[in-house]
Design a protein around this nucleic acid. Structure first.
Lengths: 217, 217
DNA sequence: TTTCAGATATTATTATTTTAACAGAAAAAC
DNA sequence: GTTTTTCTGTTAAAATAATAATATCTGAAA
């Protein structure tokens, strides 16, 4: 590797990696074995320079005069993203969204494995979400003590999240995928990725408003 | 307004607005009528400078020596985000995720109104998602010709998305909330907001890997 | 072999974004 | 009232990020 291993990679770069990964997967599916940053940039609508710089942060994966080997690069990004292992996941809040996630088959394919689901609503406790039976939320803590849980999906109303979050943290959960409309306060040894759908749709409505504003002018 | 109306606001700023909006909503709920950028910055964990600069892009909403009036600022951001109107939405792909979104009551509260849902799976056509009956995908085009649809939620497998997207565009849909794992090519008069959950969870697994890497050192 | 186009790694430049600084207006204190 | 403090809008500086430029390496064809 050409770069300082300890150099902190910016989130902007990291957030682009899954997209590269997706495009490389598509290329693989189409049997394309090599690609240059220039060609990839045309496909993706970004500058070739950015692609080269982004990848170069993690190592020298390309070859001058040749480009990048698709399969090799795909595997490298897979490793960088931590997709070369399995994650045990649980769902907290097995409502509509929680169940939708549990039923989504692609997660399992990528190594994200649901091993439990919890809810406080007695009407759905006992039913299944994906492969797992929904347990009562009171069983969460004992479950955590008996099972290694890497990621908790938090899809509960915002006012409940601050109660649940510490239980997760204290029992060894190190990753939280947060769909609740609240910012979690977690210690440094826990990582949170927010998936705030409401904020996403608000961004869309902003863009729509801008569009209409410009049309009127 | 202090600024050039035509100045293009960067997406980075826009993406922060919903979060301000959420915090202001919380303040309102707690009966707090005024707040300074400094106090808000402590709550939100961002710099006061950024808050002032962000807000100032849209107007002079604050008052020296006083701060910001919570309710007034809340309403202003609401307007900026285009949340002071209703949006007619449809769901394309009423699988687990589509149904979860249709059933989420907060959308309606915010003015996002589902008026239709479509799927090609005959097993679910005829069932209801939220308030609407799921129609066969063949009815999409006639539906669009008869109803004003502002936003289409695209939650279908990626290989179907390129077929559907032009139908939406040609029939007047101007906003697409894209959950499909593909980048849509749409003309300038259409806006797309991607909600790529897979990319989000990959970012989480990256963060987890970094965490573990640092622990080992 | 040698040459040369192709393509990267890397450095330099430019643009954007964030943070800091501060003058001045309003509110609060006295 | 007057003074002091608060707190914004705005300008300036610093830090990041994106783009462009370039030196260098590779592989293949002549």
């Amino acid at each position: 590797m050409s770069k300082d291993e300890n150099e902190k990679i910016s989130l902007a770069v990291v957030k682009r990696l899954p997209r590269y990964y997706r495009y490389l997967g598509d290329l693989l599916e189409h049997g394309i074995t090599r690609i240059s940053s220039g060609d990839l940039s045309k496909k993706m609508g970004v500058t070739a320079s950015q692609i080269r710089q982004d990848l170069n942060k993690f190592g020298c994966f390309g070859q001058r005069g040749y480009g990048y080997n698709v399969e090799m690069l795909y595997d490298e990004i897979k490793k960088i993203l931590g997709l070369d292992r399995e994650y045990n996941m649980i769902i907290i809040g097995a409502g509509n969204l929680g169940q939708a996630l549990a039923n989504y088959p692609n997660f399992r394919k990528r190594g994200f494995k649901f091993i439990g689901a919890f809810d406080k609503n007695p009407d759905i406790v006992g039913k299944t979400a994906g492969d797992v039976v929904i347990m009562d939320i009171s069983e969460l803590e004992p479950f955590l003590k008996e099972n290694r849980v890497d990621i908790a999906v938090l899809s509960i109303p915002k006012y409940n999240a601050p109660k649940i979050s510490p239980i997760l943290v204290e029992n060894g959960v190190r990753g939280i995928w947060n769909f609740s409309h609240i910012d979690l306060n977690t210690p440094d040894n826990v990582v949170v990725e927010n998936a705030h759908l409401t904020e996403s749709v608000m961004t869309l409505s902003y863009k729509l408003s801008e569009l209409e504003k410009n049309n009127k002018e």
